[in-house]
Structure formats: C-alpha cells, structure tokens
Amino acid sequence: MPERFEHLKSRTFVIDQEDIDTDQIIPARFLTTTTREGLGDLAFHDWRYDSDGKPLDNVSLNALDTRSHRILVAGRNFGCGSSREHAPWALHDFGFRAVISSEIADIFRSNAAKNGLLPILAPPEAHRWLLEHPDVEIEIDLANQRVDLGNGPGFDFTIEPFARHCLMEGTDPLGFLTAHAADTDAYEARTA
C-alpha cells in the first residue's frame, strides 16, 4: 500500500526529452519478475549501465540523491508505450514521488496515481520554466492542487478526484469496487 501523499517539498530532476517510453523507464527484458518490489535499480536501466551492467560514470541519474530529489520533470508525452505497471513501480522504488510533464500517457498516468507517484500536468509556460531550471526546490500541495515554483510561475493542476482521494488516503481503489458488489450483481442479473 502506498504511503499517504499530501505535501511534497523537494528538488526537481529534469530529463528534457520528449516521448520517454516505458521501454526506457524499464526495459521489457526485466518484466519476468513476479513481484513489484526492488525495481528501482532497473529504472532507466539502459541509460544508466553499460552492456556489462556496470554503472556509467557520466550519467547524472547515477549520482542523484533521490532523498532530496523526489520530483521528476520530463519532456512532453512521458510514459508512452506499454501498460506495464513496472514503470511506476520502478520510478517509485528509485525514489521519485511525483512526475511533472506537459503531457503524460494515459495508462502510465493511471498506473502512477495508484502507486504513490503523483502525475502532474503542467501548463506549457510552467513546464518550459521547469525544464530550463533544473534542480530547483518546488512544493506540491495535493489537497489544493497547487505547485509552487519559488521564483518561477507556480500553477494549479487538476487530478481526477477519486485518484486524488486515494493518493491522499494511501488507499487502493479496490475497496471501493468490492463495496459495490451488489451493483455488479444487479447489472449481471439485468444483462444475463
């Protein structure tokens, strides 16, 4: 179960690249796992390691302290590609708690919100500012759906209300669905 998400004050880590697909976030050959834990070492694997599996020296992701940098800022259309939930599992385990872009792919966005990784859509101006000002401290207020950029153009964002509720409570939506089993019974009786 993810931790409760209310406020987050942390520094940003910027990857100024568009269309970062799920194969970049976690390559498919690592998807033979049957658990969701411990995938952080595999996040952006092929960017971080050489063909022998040795960490590359010149890759800033390898030097990143995610205790102080919990917010990933990425180019437009982050998380496109596959439905693998391993992508947000890996990013969360790596240490990120929020991802900000001007556009985030549908399935990734849905998966992220269910795993304590807050997906935030930024307006173009704020997104550009974040890309151009790497490594800044910003503050995310989920209850008020507000991002404060310090010297930059702070912005309001919207997240689907139920997803927000689940993030703030640290709950999975499964309980909501099981509580409506009688409605499903009625639907099945009606359509049988």
Binding site: R36, S82, S83, R84, E85, I107, S110, N111, K114, N115, D172, L174
Partner: peptide, 8 residues
C-alpha cells in the same frame, strides 16, 4: 489495456 492493479 490496463495496469496490473486494475487486472486485480
């Protein structure tokens, strides 16, 4: 397509 949480 759906994620694994939704598969559950």
């Amino acid at each position: 397509g759906i994620g694994t949480t939704e598969v559950g």
